[in-house]
Design a protein around this nucleic acid. Sequence first.
DNA 1: TCCCCTCGACTTTTT
DNA 2: GTCGAGGGGA
Length: 852
Amino acid sequence: MSNGFDDIPFFDEEPARAPGRGERRAAVPADGPADARDGRARQDQGAAPAQGPSGLAARAMAARDRDRAPDYLSGLNPEQRLAVETLDGPVLVLAGAGTGKTRVLTTRIAHIMATGRAYPSQILAVTFTNKAAREMKERIGVLVGGAVEGMPWLGTFHSIGVKLLRRHAELAGIRSDFTILDTDDVTRLIKQILQAESIDDKRWPAKQFAQLIDGWKNKGLTPADIPEGDARAFGNGKGRELYAAYQARLRTLNACDFGDLLLHPIAIFRKHPDLLREYHGRFRYILVDEYQDTNTAQYMWLRLLAQRPSPAKGEPRTADNTVNICCVGDDDQSIYGWRGAEVDNILRFDKDFPGATVIKLERNYRSTAHILATAGHLIAHNEGRLGKTLFTDRHDPEDQKVQVHAAWDSEEEARAVGEEIEQLQRDKHLLNNMAILVRASFQMREFEDRFVTLGLNYRVIGGPRFYERMEIRDAMAYFRLVCQDADDLAFERIVNTPKRGLGDTTIRLLHDYARARDIPMLAAAADIIETDEVKAKARKSLFDVVTMVRRWQGLLENTPHTELAEIILEESGYTDMWKVDKTAEAPGRLENLKELVRSMEAFESMRGFLEHVSLVMDAEQNENLDAVNIMTLHSAKGLEFETVFLPGWEEGLFPHQRSLDEGGRSGLEEERRLAYVGLTRAKRRCHLWFVSNRRIHGLWQSTIPSRFIEELPVDHVEVAEMEQSYGGYGRGGYGQSRFDKQEPFQNTYATPGWKRAQANKTDATRDNWGNRSGVAIDRIGYGESGPKARTIEGELTVRSTVETPSKFGIGDRVFHIKFGNGNIAGIEGNKLTIDFDRAGQKRVLDGFVEKV
DNA sequence: TCCCCTCGACTTTTT
DNA sequence: GTCGAGGGGA
């Protein structure tokens, strides 16, 4: 297959020109182990292959100038082609739904490489989700005909942030083997801080504070930057102190939360302009996907990397001072305002980057004219848009108008959708091409129940995740502690799991001691076992834990990591704990642990695996199974389906009451954009539903149709004829599986649907990875088809074992909380031997002793 | 230390 | 209505 790249060996050829101005070997560390092994990958650093009559560039330019455009450009429409070929200067592509946004991005990258403008490793391409990054990689691979090994800087904001931070961690005051905390860890950490500050966590919930901090970090605010009002609004006015305390704790734990993955690099770049300049030299081209979703922190990060010094008067723009940034987005699909996205970023792009080329993509290749007109008419009710109107050439009289259905209640809604799906199935439509997009996840349940009854396969996208399961988190905590022993959160999680008789008292003691001396709890435990601070039994247990962890740490370098994982789970007694457990879940949990170890095989090291899990929280779904997709409108963004069902268009649910209450007009507009996203997912058929009665928080409430329904254009929408009476039970002529209501004595388990389900099923509720999926298992090929091995850069092992001189002297009279008064008989570092008046001679830690 | 019961929450969610 | 967390009692 010819793709226009056949005669351009751009991966292998060196730029054949002499080093020019501004060209120097960057001091930026190499691209990790791959670079070290492969000299070729390093050649790009600092050297731009763009100018000069090099063999590669000349040929590429000739290729471009030939009448016949490269194959990969053919098939693009004029606007798309402009977006691909406008390589110099800032470019904003306003790409409406279904206008070939991803195609433009990927072709542009291919074009940059094919024309020899930059090496793959000189292109920074950022997305929001791992899914988008993966898709982009694949599609570029198809375009250039091979794996895209050479694009180390294609990834999510966060994964690129981690990459930067691992290289320059010490500039942020942490070590490069830092741990990435997830939201659960963060909440637990905050809970501890609130407790330490004796703040009532009933009145000031840790979760709320976690969200507050997240919000500040989204805005790029450090404790010093937050507005006074914000600071006062939490924890008796202690908001700022608490935030600072939290950051301090993260530093001692050698850990980062998600926000830090962006904020630390920003701080580093600001403090070290020379380093930033190295990256300016490296990144010839910057591409950003879904620009309308960027928050302030991401925006600041991008600005730092994108901004180049303006050319002096009279000087021409050169590769050194041109901002080759291309942002692609759609203001009408901005649906993440509630988590800090600033639509403003896209609205004022041309002010941020003067001289920007703005290109609108309005030709839609996805949907029918009816669907487009409906979506367009709806979104026109919003103010403050950049204003795009999607159009299509496709006008097929066979095309169905958008169907609006009414149902009595949510149960009937689910039943009717089920019937529609079965009808489509009989007409040979694949279930994979259908999706039910809901506003809120509680709506899913009704559909799941119904589909289990019908024996219809379904998959829930974005449900509960495997790594949130208890046994996975426990196992991961062991691994984390072994890789990074300052990870106190991991330590606390596993120290008494399985039960080792290390209760609250012991843990509190360890915690206090560790805090007082600013050392990890594992180190604190190592100290304490040499003393009499804790009872013999607890001491033995602690000794075991410390010894085990130390032993595993010793094995880390030279033992295959999957083997080590097994050793850890065995020796810690963790698997035994579940073997002994007689509850129903225990076998499943053991199975999950096995899967966990198996899935580690795809990674190069245990650290690589840990990093993957903390960054990539989605698990891949099985595409091979034909199943209806159920997901929220939010997670549907970027996807498309032949047939889309949009249930629950009622006031209060959609638009959601809380959006209206908290967001006012802009909240309503965001909801409307969400509706727009939902409609534009559909290629051929789109069904809207609203019900008159819905159960909310356990009680039935009567509802009125969404205002959005009134905003639809009458010419393109039709009210679907109900085959059954409104509010009655189904009487339709088709569907063998709809008699559970008609035959009251037959319970659901006797329906053919249920029997079918039984026949197909291996697990009708959840698969091992915590993915909810129906009827036939939708198992994830996490092990086999999982990600390629990852490498972690710049491994660094620094241990903080600073000894502080004891403030005590032999003979001092002291008081110990547990043993009372006594005299110091010996001192050994921080351990004191004391002759207690009552308890006799004991070894204790100086932290627990006061002079009297 | 564990288990049971009560109480409260309950939009969307990536990383 | 359902689930999870946390408190209190055995």
